[in-house]
Amino acid sequence: MSVSGNGIMDSKFFPVVFMLILTVIFVGILAAFYRASEKGIEQYKQQTYKLQILSLFADTLSVLTGIEKAELTDPVRVQENYEKYIREVNISSDQIKTVSSRYFTASIMQDNVLGYCFDIKGSGLWGTMRGLMAVTPDFSKIINFVIYDQMETPGLGSRVTEDWFKQQFAGKSLISGNAVEDFSLVQEDATANAAEIRQVTGATITSSAVLKIIVSAAAELRDLRPDLKGEQDE
């Protein structure tokens, strides 16, 4: 291989070396830029997450405190409201093993537990879907439910994040006695009864997956119930 300027550029390895150097430079720049911005991105993620949890309890809190729902879920006051009304519940490591949920949070007002919120997940059509489910203190009813992370088909499966779909779960019975509620799907334009959920048209798999996530979380909650109750009494 010649060492003269033009000689190196004529070499058949030059394009490979050129691309390699260029890639290293740009990957380096990107890595450095991402490192510098990581904190901001993470902060926003945390804030959105906290806002979602607050929104789930917003109706209940609004009734009890008399504060407008919009004020409770005001993005500017997320941290303040979260600290005021939401507590992360301590659960021993043994209990964590029994449930796949990542976080347990409870909405508490003047030492009264208004409900628990569980971070639940399961498989959708294209990947993992993550949701937050707020339930009453005795786990019998769903207060509110939301899917906050999903990779479903835009315009079809991803419609499970729309208001009409998630609002269907509010107030639904989850565990009655010792049995988990058996939800079933009906057409989007049909009228659903207490144990039915209107599915997203063209996204039966995603709709069923959402039900499966809720039902399997409920089965875990049913087993966990006495322990949590015990801790609550303390």
Partner: peptide, 12 residues
Amino acid sequence: IIVDIFLRANLP
């Protein structure tokens, strides 16, 4: 990607 990261961090 720099534009994308900038927006995600500053104008989420």
